[in-house]
Computed example of a mutant assay.
Amino acid sequence: MAETELCFPQLNTSCVKPKRPLSDTVLIYMILSFISLLTAALNLLVIISISHFKQLHTPTNSLILSLAVSDLFVGFILLFQSMLIDGCWYIGDLMCVLYYGLDYIIISSSVGTMVLISIDRYVAICDPLHYSIRVTQKRVQVCVCLCWIWFLFCFIVFLKDNLKQPGQYNSCVGECVIMVTLSEQVVGFFFYFILPITVIVVLYMRVFVVAVSQARAMRPHIVTVTVQGSRKVTAKKSELKAARTLGVVVVVFIICFCPYYCVSLAYQETLFNASSAAFVICLYYFNSCLNPLIYAFFYPWFRKCTKVIVTLQILTSGSSDTNIL
Results as ranks from 00 to 15, higher is better:
4 T>E: 15
6 L>Y: 14
6 L>A: 09
8 F>E: 11
10 Q>D: 09
10 Q>E: 15
20 R>L: 10
24 D>Q: 11
26 V>A: 14
27 L>C: 04
29 Y>E: 06
29 Y>T: 02
31 I>G: 03
34 F>N: 09
34 F>D: 02
35 I>R: 02
38 L>N: 03
39 T>I: 06
40 A>R: 12
46 V>F: 08
46 V>W: 00
56 L>Q: 05
58 T>E: 11
65 L>Y: 13
66 S>M: 08
67 L>N: 03
73 F>T: 01
77 I>R: 02
78 L>F: 07
80 F>A: 15
81 Q>V: 04
82 S>M: 10
83 M>P: 01
83 M>G: 01
94 L>V: 07
97 V>Y: 04
102 L>P: 02
107 I>E: 06
110 S>F: 00
113 T>L: 05
113 T>P: 10
116 L>W: 09
117 I>D: 01
117 I>Q: 06
121 R>V: 02
122 Y>C: 06
123 V>P: 06
124 A>G: 05
125 I>P: 01
125 I>T: 10
131 Y>A: 00
135 V>P: 02
143 C>F: 10
145 C>Y: 05
147 C>T: 14
147 C>N: 15
157 V>W: 14
161 D>M: 02
166 P>Q: 07
166 P>A: 07
169 Y>D: 12
170 N>C: 10
171 S>R: 09
173 V>M: 10
174 G>W: 13
175 E>N: 15
175 E>Q: 15
175 E>M: 14
177 V>T: 09
178 I>V: 14
184 E>M: 11
188 G>D: 00
190 F>E: 01
192 Y>W: 04
193 F>Y: 03
194 I>T: 05
196 P>I: 10
199 V>H: 00
200 I>Y: 07
203 L>I: 05
205 M>T: 11
206 R>M: 09
206 R>K: 15
207 V>A: 01
209 V>R: 15
214 Q>N: 12
214 Q>E: 11
221 H>N: 12
222 I>K: 14
222 I>T: 06
225 V>M: 09
227 V>E: 13
229 G>Y: 04
233 V>G: 09
240 L>S: 13
242 A>Y: 02
246 L>C: 13
247 G>L: 07
248 V>T: 13
252 V>S: 10
252 V>R: 04
256 C>Y: 09
259 P>C: 00
260 Y>C: 10
261 Y>H: 12
263 V>D: 14
264 S>Q: 02
267 Y>P: 11
268 Q>H: 15
269 E>S: 14
271 L>F: 02
272 F>Q: 12
274 A>V: 07
275 S>K: 13
276 S>Q: 12
277 A>D: 09
277 A>G: 09
281 I>Q: 14
285 Y>N: 10
286 F>N: 14
290 L>M: 14
292 P>D: 08
294 I>D: 07
296 A>M: 12
297 F>L: 08
301 W>D: 10
307 K>R: 13
307 K>S: 15
313 Q>N: 14
317 S>K: 12
319 S>V: 04
319 S>M: 05
322 T>Q: 06
324 I>W: 03
325 L>E: 15
